[in-house]
């Protein structure tokens, strides 16, 4: 027996697990960014990338410096931020309200879900001229467009979140004879909060996209107006500077939601 074991080849069992589990690696994302910018810089300086195709990153940087020193940066950013705040707050809070009503009441669900499904895919930009007639050319139509654009996705994600609240928790509430109002405020709403917040991530990104559309009509200042103007002037440096500002807004919104998730959803394992 032992002889035959001796005679047989012995080798370690080959490892075949591993992979398929994302791990957090620092700095890689940042270095991809930096490399891309360096390549662009070198390419535009050497003439390998024509200035018609891409702006020189350092020129975009200088555009920022100019925006900053001339005070124009805030003149453009502040109106956009206030449009975003008013419009998105309006749309999202209405959306959460209606979403919860749909989640709770079968009649409201039956009445409104088809309507919401019908208006969800309508490109809100297409309705811009109509909004101008309804709400005038000033700020109100911009608020309305952003609010309308955030409303529908928020409704859908909110009633989805309410539907997904663990039914066993609601049954528990009933078993302790909690009032309907207590069940809604203490069980349904907190339980729907993760879904509502992740829905807000999407809705607020849509709000930023719509900001540019909202500022197509009658906006003298604003990041969207700035980008549109840069586009029509074929001024790539300003165009990219504007796009970077929009990206920063997106990252900021995402960070704010992340903060709220940490504060409100710390209970999640």
């Amino acid at each position: 027996m032992s002889d035959s074991v001796q005679a047989k080849q012995t080798k370690p069992v080959a490892f075949r697990g591993g992979g398929f589990s994302p791990i957090h690696i620092k700095w890689v994302g940042l270095s991809v960014f930096v490399t891309l910018i360096l390549v662009l810089e070198a390419g535009t300086r050497s003439g390998f990338i024509s200035n018609l195709t891409m702006p020189r990153p350092s020129d975009v940087g200088w555009t920022f410096v100019e925006l900053w020193t001339s005070g124009l940066l805030w003149k453009h950013v502040l109106p956009s931020v206030s449009r975003l705040l008013v419009g998105a707050t309006l749309g999202a809070s209405l959306g959460i309200g209606v979403g919860i009503l749909i989640g709770l009441f079968s009649y409201i669900r039956a009445g409104l879900v088809p309507l919401i499904s019908a208006i969800f895919p309508v490109p809100k930009i297409a309705l811009l001229p109509l909004f101008v007639i309804w709400f005038g050319i000033d700020e109100t139509s911009k608020y309305a467009l952003i609010a309308f654009g955030t409303f529908t996705p928020t409704v859908v994600s909110t009633f989805g979140a309410v539907d997904n609240v663990d039914r066993s928790l609601i049954r528990m509430g009933q078993s302790f004879s909690l009032s309907w109002f207590s069940i809604v405020t203490k069980i349904v709403l907190p339980g729907a909060m993760p879904g509502i917040l992740s829905g807000l991530r999407v809705s607020l990104a849509i709000a930023i996209i719509l900001l540019v559309a909202a500022e197509m009509l009658g906006a003298e200042y604003g990041i969207g107006a700035y980008i549109l103007q840069a586009g029509s002037l074929y001024d790539l440096e300003r165009l990219f500077a504007g796009v970077v500002i929009l990206s920063v807004m997106g990252v900021t919104v995402s960070a704010v939601i992340g903060f709220f998730e940490k504060r409100l959803l710390g209970w999640r394992s």
């Binding site: 066993s168 928790l169 528990m172 302790f176 004879s177 909690l178 907190p190 339980g191 999640r268 394992s269």
Partner: peptide
Amino acid sequence: FQDFALLPWRTVEGNISLVLED
């Protein structure tokens, strides 16, 4: 209940006070 049915967003204390509040 078999699955405990605790509100994950409330502390131990909060889960008990839930049924007293009403």
